[in-house]
Amino acid sequence: MQEALKNTIDERNIVIDEVKKVLIERLNLYQEPQDIDEDTPLFGSGLKLDSVDATEVVVMLDMSFGIKVEEGTDPSFMRNINQLVDFILERKRATEAAAAEAA
């Protein structure tokens, strides 16, 4: 595997693991991390979270990833683990880009 690809996958893996870990801890889920597939839906079916849990996901993003979710943000980033991870990585890149520009 090429170095760049490996780095991308490693970076994603770290976020995936962290997301699963904190969701399990904060929402008292019964699953082990490896039991949660990345395309698992968060609401309705899948992990079967509800609107109260949605607020926990927002708090989790702040506490574990330093991401503030503004009012009015399209909630589709919470559709499944993969989309949550995409959202975190996007925000991370945006922050890094902003920092690079500032420097």
Binding site: A4, L5, I9, E38, R79, N82, Q83, D86
Partner: peptide
């Protein structure tokens, strides 16, 4: 499994005629 991640733009579909089309892996739906 080692390659099975969403958010990757380094793969391609290779058709039977050997033509490659670049793809992004993605979350589903």
């Amino acid at each position: 499994e080692a390659y099975a991640y969403a958010g990757i733009d380094a793969y391609a579909i290779k058709t039977t005629d050997g033509v490659e089309f670049k793809v992004n892996t993605t979350a589903t739906p």
